[in-house]
Amino acid sequence: MMKIRTGFGFDVHRLVEGRDLWLGGIKIEHSMGLLGHSDADVLIHAICDALLGAANMRDIGYHFPDTSADTLNIDSKVLLRKTVELIAGKGYVVGNIDATVCAERPKINPHVPAIKACLAEVIGTDEDNISIKATTTEKLGFTGREEGISAYAVVLIERKDD
């Protein structure tokens, strides 16, 4: 018998000048980047929160606090790899991920294949198990004013019962 669980994650970071823009583990050319203690990869952070939530292991801030020197400017791919290892410690593997990035600019859709390939490699799963979508807020709210980018993720994790 297989045990499956689902998790939901959400993250948001402010857009600022003078920072690189990292989304889904890849650097995207843009006039602004996301502000954060790490590289502020909002998509990976939402996925990590969803995975941790599905395994009932709290959230990304609990495991990788933004007060720690160990996580200062860290590549979020490292956090994702460690998150996958954490859930594996409870016997879980990633089943699938469905995530949405919410940004007015830059356009995300041209980068989706590279994001999927990057995430699949970090997680150790097939690209077909990862769905990345993009949307805008029709110029409404902080996203519409291009003050920040948000991301949402839903995941399914699986564990084989002996």
Rank of each mutant, 00 (worst) to 15 (best):
A120K: 02
D59Y: 11
W22S: 00
I149P: 05
F8C: 09
V154N: 03
C48V: 09
K133R: 13
T71S: 09
D70R: 15
C102S: 11
L43H: 01
A153S: 09
L34M: 07
T135H: 08
T136A: 03
I87T: 05
D70F: 15
K90Q: 15
R105N: 14
G89M: 01
K90T: 12
D41A: 06
F64V: 09
T137I: 04
S38I: 06
K3T: 13
K82T: 12
T83D: 05
D128K: 15
G91A: 08
L156R: 10
M2A: 03
A46Q: 11
R81K: 10
E146S: 06
E147S: 02
P110V: 11
I115T: 08
V122P: 04
D70H: 15
N56H: 00
E127M: 09
G9L: 11
D66M: 13
I115N: 12
R105Q: 10
C48E: 00
N73A: 12
I47M: 10
R145F: 01
G141K: 02
V12F: 15
F142Y: 05
I123C: 12
A40N: 01
I132D: 06
I44L: 14
E138Y: 06
A117R: 14
L21N: 10
M2V: 13
A117M: 06
G36F: 01
T143I: 13
T135G: 02
P113V: 11
I74T: 15
K27Q: 11
E104V: 06
P65N: 10
C48P: 06
R81F: 13
I132V: 15
G53E: 14
N129P: 05
G7Y: 08
I149M: 07
H37E: 04
I26Y: 11
R145Y: 00
I115K: 13
E127T: 07
I130P: 04
V112Y: 10
A69G: 07
D75M: 05
R5N: 12
P106A: 04
A54P: 03
S150R: 15
T135Q: 07
T100L: 14
G61N: 14
E158A: 08
R159D: 00
T143W: 04
E121K: 14
L21H: 12
L86E: 01
R58D: 05
V101R: 02
I108Q: 09
G53R: 07
M32S: 00
V122G: 08
I4Q: 14
T100V: 15
A153W: 01
E147V: 00
I4L: 05
V94H: 00
H63R: 11
A114T: 06
R81H: 05
L23K: 05
I157A: 00
R159G: 05
I149E: 03
A120I: 09
V84S: 04
V93I: 01
D98R: 12
